[in-house]
Structures are given as C-alpha cells and as structure tokens.
Design a protein around this nucleic acid. Structure first.
Lengths: 147, 147
DNA sequence: TCAACATTGACAGTATACTGACTATCTGTA
DNA sequence: TACAGATAGTCAGTATACTGTCAATGTTGA
C-alpha cells in the first residue's frame, strides 16, 4: 500500500510549508512574504537585471516574477526602470528602503533557519543542503553559462 | 551577505517545485494534480472521514481541502455523503473509480520518486526522509491522540 | 430546557505558481 | 532594407495555500 505520509514529495511539501510559516512570522512586520523576501535577497546580490534575467537566476517563473515585482513596487522596495537599450525590457532596481532592509531581514532569515533546523545538528543541516541541491536539479543558466 | 541561493528555505521550495513537476508529468493522463493525488492516497488508507478529520490526518488546511474535494468530486473520484449523526458534516468516500486508481497511481509515484532521487543513494534517501520528517515538525493529531 | 460556547464547512480575499496566448520589440539573414 | 523568427513582459485562467468571517448545527453546564 502506498505510504503518502512518508513519501519524499509529501514531506517536502510539509517541510516547505513549515519553513514558509516560520519565515512569514519573522518578516511579518515588514509586510513581506517569503517569495518577496527571496527576490529581495537576489537583488541585494545584484541589482538592475531585467525580469527575464532575474527569473533565470532566481529560478522564478516569468509570470510569477511579474506579480512579485508589482507588489514590491507597490510597497516601495523595488522599482522598474526602462532598459536603456531594449524598449521591451525593464531593469529592476532596489529603492534605498529596499537596500536598507538587507541587514534586518537577513537576521530574520538567520533566526528562521535556527528555529526550522532546531532538531538537526549542523552537520545534518549541511547534508540536507547538499541533498536538496541535488533534488532541485539543474539550473540551466548556470549549467550552460555561455551557450 | 545573505546567501538565498543556498538557504534551506529556498532549496526546499525549489526541490518541492521539482517534485511537483515530476509527479504532475506522471499523473497528467489522469487529470490529477499532486495535492489531489496525495488526498486520494490518504483515502486509500482510510475512507469515510469528515473533512475536518481528513484535514488533520493529511495536514491539509481546511479551506484548501474543501477545494480539493470539490475538484475530485467533479472528476468523479470522490463523493460527499451526509454524516449520519452530524448534519453539519460530510463523510468523504472514494468512488469505485477512485479506488481503482490506487495501483496505477502508486506506480506513478514510485517512478516519480526514482526520477526525483536519481542523484542520491538509497541510504541518502532514507536520511533525507528522516530529516524532512524532523523539519516538518509536530503533527498535533498524532502527538496528542486522545486529548 | 436553554443559553453560552464550540465545531463544521462554506465563502471572500490575497498571494504564489504555472500554462498558454498576445503585443511590442529586437535580431539575424536574405 | 525587409521580413521571419526570437524575445520581453503582460494578461487571462486554473490550482494550491492560507486568513478571516459566517451560518448552521452540536455540546455543555446552569
């Protein structure tokens, strides 16, 4: 008989839901959701990419990303600027407020990780990270950087 | 600098998305989604629970579950029957077609697991299962069975 | 018995996530 | 240069997932 309860897929979905809920709790005061936080975190690393580029580096669906940016624009953390050489595209930039949040939000993420992995040792967390990276599969952008 | 790309939360979300996509591919022909499949799998184990009971054993949000059942009812795999002793509640039952799908759908799930964990050894998969179970956290239903 | 409280499921509203279609624009080639 | 095909971003539509609210019904205690 098939045992959903202990299937990797089911456990992944529940572990993910818990991770989401914990992070949501930590960043609630900033009126952000976990995916919005993740997008900000990519922007802290590199600013001014187009939506398509962001969608690739962040492994976020193009249409999903559009909505994320809409909402971050509305809350004033991000802005769309016209691309200087491509009238179809935008460059996505952090506002000063979006940049200021890097330190406090990173702290939230650190606390969340601690709470989430409370039952695991540091070695186990590294192992988990390694295995999840394998499960996650190829990220075509990085696998074929210059093709 | 905060490294989203290698954070457990981000990796969980991407691993989950890949698991979803792979399972979706396998069960597409049955016009099912992964959460619908998971609900069916719980029903194969035990039939006739109320929505609230199912929501607890399956760790599925009550309102989300309502929608899942709506759609499974529409595709004829499940039916709501009035509860004999509680006029507020329904008992959720598999139809014969819902029951017939146990074997073929279980095969789909087995194939999906194989594809998903292609890069891991069997020992690693067990380790992963154990760690995800810890991350997932308490399931109040099972932790406090009779309170 | 009856009033206070709890529970069941539905509904509205919001945010992801993804598909498929579409417009505007860009690029490469004849 | 002109055109065919590719690309950037949006929009409509569907399915989860969750919050808050509500009506109907149960349950419990005075």
């Amino acid at each position: 008989m098939y045992d959903v309860e202990n299937s990797i897929g089911f456990l992944l979905s529940k572990a993910y839901q818990r991770a989401w809920a914990l992070l949501r709790e930590e960043i609630e005061q900033y009126e952000l959701t976990p995916p919005q936080f993740a997008l900000l975190a990519f922007l802290w690393r590199e600013d001014g990419l187009t939506q398509t580029e962001l969608s690739e580096t962040g492994q976020i669906d193009r249409t999903t990303l559009g909505g994320l940016i809409d909402r971050l624009e509305k809350t004033g953390l991000v802005e769309r600027r016209p691309h200087p050489r491509d009238r179809r595209a935008y460059q996505i930039h952090l506002t000063s407020r979006g940049r200021e949040l890097e330190v406090p939000l990173s702290d939230c993420a650190t606390r969340t990780l601690a709470r989430l992995t409370n039952g695991l040792t540091e070695t186990e967390v590294s192992e988990l990270r390694r295995m999840l990276t394998i499960l996650r599969g190829e990220r075509t952008v990085y696998d074929f950087p210059a093709c």
